[in-house]
C-alpha cells in the first residue's frame, strides 16, 4: 500500500449567512515520498482542503467524502485520535511563521516541543534532537539559535524553524500551506531547499499548497490546478508546464511575468452561486454552448486529467 493519502470526492460547504460551496468533489492521492502541488488562486478552495485534512475547519463547515490517511478515514476519527495523529504522523506548516511561533519562548524550546506534546522523551534529550535538526538544516552554530527568540530572527529563518518544529517527529505526510507567501525571493530559496531536503532525506510525502507556480514547479512531482473549488487539471509537473491543457491553466501561465503578464479577463465565480456547467466558461475564450450547460468531469487524456469538454 504505497498511498499515504487518498482523498475521495471531498466536498466542503460552509453554512454561514449564505451557503458557500468551497470545495466540490475533489479526489487525489499522494504516494510515499511524492510531492503533490495543489495550486490555484485565492478562493479556489485549496487551503480549505488542507484544513479539512487536518480537521481544523470551523463548526459551520459541512464535510462530505473520504480522506484516507494510512488506511484510516480522518473524517471519521474522534478528536482524541486526531490529536495523536497531528504532529506525529501528519504535520502542517502554515504561512506566516510569525503567527506560528510564540514570541516568548526560545526557538530551541519550540522546535523540541512536539516531543513533549506527544510524550516521547524528556526535555534534555528533546533539546539535543532539536539542536541536531537545526544543524541538519544548515545552522552550524545551532546552540546559539536554540537560545534565540523569534523576534531576533528573520522571517525566512523563522519559517524554516517552523518547518523544523513541525517535522521533527518525522511524520510521513507534511502539508505545507503557502509556505513561501510574503517572503522575499532570497528567503523563498531557503524554504524550498528545506522542504526538498525533507522529502529526499526522509522520504516524506508533501502536499504543497501554493499560488506560486515557480515554487510548485521546483518542488513537486505532480501538480493539480484548482479553480472555483474543483480540480480542473492534474498531471506530472513537467508535462503540465510544457503543455498545459485546460484554458485556465494556460491563462494562468500566460499571466506570469516571463510570459508577459497577459491577464485572464473577468473574475472568479462566487462560491455562493457557481455557474452551472463549466465554472470557467464565463471567462473562457474557447468553448461552445455545451460548456455553459453541462458540467465537465475530470477525465484522463494525453497524460493529464482535465476537466474540459474542449480538451478531449
Amino acid at each position: 500500500m504505497n498511498m499515504v493519502l487518498e482523498v475521495s470526492n471531498l466536498s466542503v460547504l460552509f453554512h454561514g449567512s449564505e451557503l458557500t460551496h468551497a470545495v466540490h468533489e475533489v479526489s487525489f492521492g499522494i504516494e510515499k515520498g511524492e510531492v503533490l502541488a495543489l495550486v490555484g488562486e485565492t478562493g479556489c478552495g485549496k487551503s480549505v482542503i488542507a484544513h479539512a485534512i487536518m480537521s481544523l475547519l470551523p463548526s459551520e463547515a459541512e464535510v462530505r467524502g473520504e480522506i484516507m490517511f494510512r488506511s484510516r478515514d480522518l473524517l471519521r476519527l474522534s478528536e482524541k485520535e486526531l490529536s495523536a495523529i497531528r504532529g506525529r504522523e501528519l504535520a502542517i506548516v502554515f504561512q506566516n511563521p510569525s503567527l506560528a511561533l510564540n514570541p516568548v519562548h526560545t526557538i530551541g524550546r519550540q522546535v523540541a516541543e512536539p516531543f513533549a506534546v506527544h510524550r516521547i522523551m524528556g526535555r534534555k534529550e528533546a533539546s539535543g534532537r532539536a539542536a541536531r535538526a537545526l544543524e541538519r538544516m544548515g545552522f552550524s552554530s545551532s546552540e546559539d539559535y536554540m537560545g534565540m527568540y523569534p523576534s531576533q530572527c528573520s522571517g525566512g529563518m523563522n519559517q524554516r524553524f517552523v518547518i523544523a518544529a513541525s517535522t521533527i517527529l518525522n511524520p510521513p505526510l507534511v502539508i505545507a500551506d503557502e509556505p513561501t507567501k510574503g517572503l522575499d525571493s532570497s528567503l523563498v530559496d531557503g524554504v524550498c531547499n528545506e522542504l526538498q531536503r525533507l522529502v529526499h532525506e526522509n522520504n516524506t510525502s508533501l502536499l504543497l499548497i501554493t499560488h506560486d507556480l515557480a515554487v510548485a514547479r521546483r518542488l513537486s512531482d505532480r501538480i493539480a490546478v484548482m479553480y472555483s473549488g474543483e480540480i480542473i487539471e492534474m498531471a506530472d509537473t513537467e508535462a503540465f508546464f510544457e503543455n498545459p491543457l485546460h484554458p485556465y491553466s494556460r491563462g494562468l501561465l500566460m499571466s506570469l511575468p516571463e510570459n508577459g503578464f497577459v491577464p485572464i479577463p473577468g473574475t472568479s465565480p462566487s462560491p455562493v452561486s457557481p455557474p452551472p456547467g463549466c465554472r470557467f466558461q464565463p471567462r473562457c475564450t474557447e468553448g461552445n454552448r455545451e460548456c455553459a450547460e453541462r458540467h465537465p468531469d475530470l477525465l484522463f487524456t494525453r497524460d493529464h486529467y482535465v476537466r474540459c469538454f474542449f480538451c478531449h
Binding site: 488562486e41 485565492t42 499560488h211 491563462g251 494562468l252 499571466s255 503578464f261 491577464p263 485572464i264
Partner: peptide
C-alpha cells in the same frame, strides 16, 4: 494579489 489578478491590475 494572485498572479492573474496582478496581471489585470498592472494592465
Amino acid at each position: 494579489l494572485d498572479v492573474s489578478v496582478q496581471a489585470q491590475i498592472l494592465h
